[in-house]
């Protein structure tokens, strides 16, 4: 569904690249976490998928299409196939829940009857039945994020990109959101989620792609937030300080599934 071939993105010639020769493939229907410190290239990754930026070199394929070859007037069509969710929800404050979700359908010219049928259905999927007429400020953060997710998936995109969707939410609410994303994933949508939230990653046991300074340093299936690979020394030290994990002397290679030792919560 998403394939990066040797992708490098340089914002500033003098600085190090934001992404450095990244090779990555995310299959249709997969659920992948993108983890890494701030500045590691997670957001750049998402921006390249959306064609908000051009890769400096290498090729980005979305749904089999090289995004560099999509002409500017067809970019909207690419974006219709991709839903996006942000940390700050980005709802329209003067529209109610129904109108916020319907907005995504109106702007691409869906008919009123289709909107009337689809929106309640999607709101039900994200668990917001009966709240159609609430205004965003009347909702909790978790509910607002559910509205944002509903808006992102209402046009049935093949891919859902989530940029730290639980960054503003407490752990319980976050788990609820993850349930929604998981449900959407089980309906066949590819989900790529950039996050810092280790609890969630550890709980979900999905594929984890870790970026550091623009390089993929880990790509494991059913993995945990932190790995035992020695290169992530710094993040491990932080973990040690918080006392949540026991350090584990140098272990396994990338991509292997047997990296759980000692990192269990």
């Amino acid at each position: 569904m998403i394939r990066f071939e040797n992708v490098t993105k340089v914002y500033d010639q003098k600085a190090r690249p934001a992404l450095d020769s990244v090779n990555l493939e995310i299959d249709r229907g997969e659920f992948a976490f993108l983890v890494g410190a701030s500045g590691s290239g997670k957001s750049t990754f998402l921006r390249l998928v959306l064609k908000e930026d051009r890769a400096t070199s290498g090729a980005v394929y979305v749904a089999g299409q090289n995004v560099a070859k999509i002409s500017s007037w067809r970019v909207p069509r690419l974006r219709r196939g991709i839903g996006v969710v942000f940390q700050d929800f980005r709802l329209l404050p003067q529209k109610n829940v129904f109108a916020n979700v319907a907005f995504a359908m109106q702007v691409i010219g869906k008919s009123r009857s289709v909107i009337r049928d689809t929106v309640p259905e999607v709101l039900k999927t994200v668990g917001l039945e009966g709240k159609e007429h609430r205004m965003p400020h009347e909702l909790s953060g978790g509910e607002q994020q559910r509205v944002a997710i509903a808006r992102a998936v209402v046009n049935r995109p093949g891919i859902l990109l989530a940029d730290e969707p639980t960054g503003n939410l407490d752990p319980t609410t976050s788990m609820g959101i993850m349930g929604v994303l998981d449900k959407i994933n089980q309906n066949g949508t590819t989900v790529v989620m950039a996050t810092h939230d280790d609890d969630i990653v550890n709980e979900m046991r999905k594929r984890v792609v870790e970026l550091k300074n623009g390089v993929v340093i880990r790509d494991e299936a059913k993995a945990l937030y932190t790995s035992m690979i020695p290169i992530v020394g710094q993040s491990r030290r932080l973990k040690d300080a918080s006392g949540r994990e026991t350090p584990d002397a140098g272990l396994p290679g990338e991509g292997s599934e047997g990296t759980e030792g000692g990192a269990q919560r």
């Binding site: 959306l50 007037w73 909207p76 069509r77 690419l78 974006r79 219709r80 196939g81 991709i82 839903g83 996006v84 980005r90 329209l92 907005f103 995504a104 702007v107 691409i108 010219g109 808006r151 992102a152 046009n155």
Partner: peptide
């Protein structure tokens, strides 16, 4: 800009925006 940002993301065409 909020509206237009969302319109962009959900794939509204240039004309509609």
């Amino acid at each position: 800009r909020r509206e237009t940002g969302i319109m962009r993301l959900v794939g509204a065409s240039k004309t509609v925006i």
